[in-house]
Simulated scan of single mutants.
Amino acid sequence: MSAAQTPTEEQEVVPTRGKPRRRSGRRGLAVTVVVGIVIAGGVGVVVFDPFGREKQDTTSETTTETALAKVTKGTLSARTLENGTLGFAGDYQVVNKADGTVTELPAVGKVIPQGKVLYRVDGKPVILLQGPYVPAYRDLSWGMEGNDVRQLNAALVALKYATKSQIDPASDYFGRQTYYALKELQEKVGAEETGELPLGQVVFLPPEEVRITKVNAVAGDKAAGGGAFMQASSTDRQVTVALNANQQADVAVGDKVTITLPNGKSTPGVVSSVGKVATKENDKTTVDVRIKPSNPKVTGELDQAPVQVAIVSDTVEDVLSVPVNALLATAGGGYAVEVVDPGGEHRLVAVKTGLFDDSAGQVEVTGGGLEVDQKIVVPSS
């Protein structure tokens, strides 16, 4: 029995019952095929074949241990449990445009913020700048326009080499202030202070800072312009789940999740994207679901670490609920719970089921006469 089902009263004897089909939420449950009926001091069990075979009456005494739980009121959430991989968001190719000999490269795992030296060719710095629009593809100088100029202006303002009143970060024009701000950046990193940006002096990548994940070149290599020197990710933490493609509709952007980390601790997160292109591997078709941890610091720095993800697909508040294994399937096709009155008398109360909270082992119920803290019979573990 789970923690959510731990008995709080003395144990009694009633039959063990199975888990019925869920009425609502995005997940389905198996149909219960064993029906328990309280008969005086014993228990009658009627077994139904879900495939239509003849039913059989097997009324008998049982010595299965039971316990008492209570009807509770509160919030329930429907969840699906999936295996995931904890790592860093993004996968970027660092393409070199400088000619010469590679003289300095970063180590795998090193974090480099924009405005700092990414690597060196012929001893000259190649600078990382944030650029979400286009990669570097030409020399830039006073009077030029374009998206590459726009991202240069935005980077110079973000790095405080100019104020917003001096350079509009959304401007795509290389003007006087761009010239002076660029000279300050070049001085800071030890490059020649020309106020012009030659092709190969900067690498534009979307994140504000990158984490090196792979280095393809070695010091001393000939740096032929256009080669992919290394790979990088952002420093944003991310969990990726390879979800069965037929479950894609069960998960949506914004769904809340609970991430269980390798150290056993849990932390919340939110679904940030659900893949639309399926991948087939070893007869399994999946889509990638990406999750952003709400508190990235507690996830540590492990890369490609296995985690478990409980995705919340539906939530109900202020509802009555009982442990799932308190449900009895009745001969008429519905469900009931076995209530124990204050005087010790046992009786069946018909209920309708709502949302199932698998992680808590609880199910939403409605039924005449059910009240908070009422005692009900559940199987003992």
Rank of each mutant, 00 (worst) to 15 (best):
A217M: 01
E209T: 03
K222E: 11
E9A: 15
I37Y: 07
K284S: 14
G74V: 04
V111H: 00
T279M: 10
G36K: 09
N244S: 15
V202M: 02
R21Y: 08
R79L: 00
Y119H: 11
R347S: 15
L320H: 13
L185Q: 05
T8D: 08
L199N: 01
D172Y: 08
V316A: 01
L320S: 08
T72K: 15
Q177M: 12
K160R: 12
V307M: 10
T62R: 13
A331S: 12
S321Q: 11
V363I: 12
Q248G: 09
T80N: 03
D49S: 07
T213V: 00
V287T: 08
A217Y: 10
V31C: 02
T75V: 14
V372I: 10
I376K: 03
K297P: 01
I37H: 10
V309Y: 01
D358H: 04
G100C: 06
K70W: 06
L129V: 02
L182R: 02
F51L: 14
G74D: 08
K70P: 01
I37R: 14
L355N: 05
N216G: 09
A217D: 09
T279W: 00
V95C: 10
G264A: 04
P323K: 08
Q374S: 10
A249D: 13
A162H: 06
G264D: 09
Q247G: 01
L129A: 02
K280A: 14
